[in-house]
Design a protein around this nucleic acid. Structure first.
Length: 279
DNA sequence: CTCCTGTCCTGCCGGC
DNA sequence: TGCCGGCAGGACAGGA
């Protein structure tokens, strides 16, 4: 679920409740996620959260040198509460953070694909989850020239390449489909065959689609929620994702007979695209 | 090495 | 209504 825009939205929602605050208590109710919670989370009690940052789809809560890294996996949520005293534990609430001022945040994850890691700031860059990550797509490091350069050696379909966090981070199944539609690129095209010109268009489409999604507060596909519990709105803007069988909005706009959005499987994941607009 | 498949887990939806 | 198969936003190990 959570791709870059959703993680960014959640992090922004957590900031006013967690940043600069003292963590009074942290309870783990269920530690056996797919990656088990570290046993040392309790060491964070009494410590201050200096700041929250994001890298790829990871949220980083900085407790001085110690960083609590949270990944939401497929179904994870972080929900803030203005008053933790009144919070009754919900199903799949695996970790609860209570701040000294009575506010708090709850990590809830039905499928338990999410994770929490405790990493020293000095060891973050060398950590296996971080050391091979590509650039942030919204940074200046990421542009058409960079994208073209990393795609050149890839024999895999462009859609699959966009999901590879070693090339560029933060793009998941939804935004890969949406960006390829926006750039007019066939998801089945080999990454190495994407031209320099098309790479530039794709880089721009990725930035645009991610920025628009962040502005909308993330998508609300299925049960995604912002940190305040509200739904995001970007799902209403999907042009192709989840729209198999529906008329392509671009074909339709051009007044011609609209093509129908197709759904195919690539590398075990669903891909949605317009067979006419995407070449 | 590169690339794809399967797997982890629960919930939900559609079909029968 | 109830059961069951299929599918879901991510990441990574393992095999070809």
């Amino acid at each position: 679920m959570p791709e870059l825009p959703e993680v960014e939205t959640v992090m922004r929602g957590l900031m006013p409740v967690l940043s600069g605050k003292i963590l009074q208590d942290i309870h783990v109710h269920r530690a056996d996620l797919r990656v088990p919670f570290p046993a040392t989370l309790a060491d964070l009690k009494g410590r201050k959260i200096d700041k929250l940052t994001r890298r790829a789809k990871y949220m980083l809560l900085h407790f001085g040198e110690d960083i609590l890294v949270i990944h939401l996996g497929m179904s994870g949520r972080m929900v803030v509460h203005r008053d933790m005293k009144g919070h009754a534990l919900q199903k799949h609430d695996h970790m609860v953070m209570v701040m000294k001022d009575g506010t708090g945040a709850v990590f809830n994850d039905p499928r338990r694909f999410g994770m929490a890691l405790l990493i020293k700031e000095s060891e973050l860059a060398a950590h296996k989850s971080f050391k091979n990550l590509g650039p942030e797509p919204l940074s200046r490091d990421f542009d058409g020239a960079f994208l073209h350069a990393v795609l050149r050696s890839k024999n895999t379909p462009i859609k699959s390449a966009l999901l590879d966090q070693h090339l560029v981070v933060g793009i998941g199944n939804i935004y890969a489909c949406e960006a390829l539609f926006e750039a007019g690129i066939d998801p089945r095209k080999k990454a190495k065959d994407v031209t320099s010109k098309k790479s530039a268009e794709l880089a721009k489409a990725i930035k645009d689609v991610l920025n628009r999604a962040i502005k909308a507060g993330g998508s609300s596909l299925k049960d995604y929620r912002q940190a305040d519990g509200n739904l995001g709105y970007f799902q209403h803007s999907f042009k192709v994702y989840g729209r198999a069988g529906v008329a392509c909005p671009r074909c339709k706009k051009d007044g011609k007979k609209a093509s129908i959005i197709q759904k195919i499987t690539q590398a075990g994941r669903s891909t949605f695209f317009c067979p006419s607009c995407q070449k």
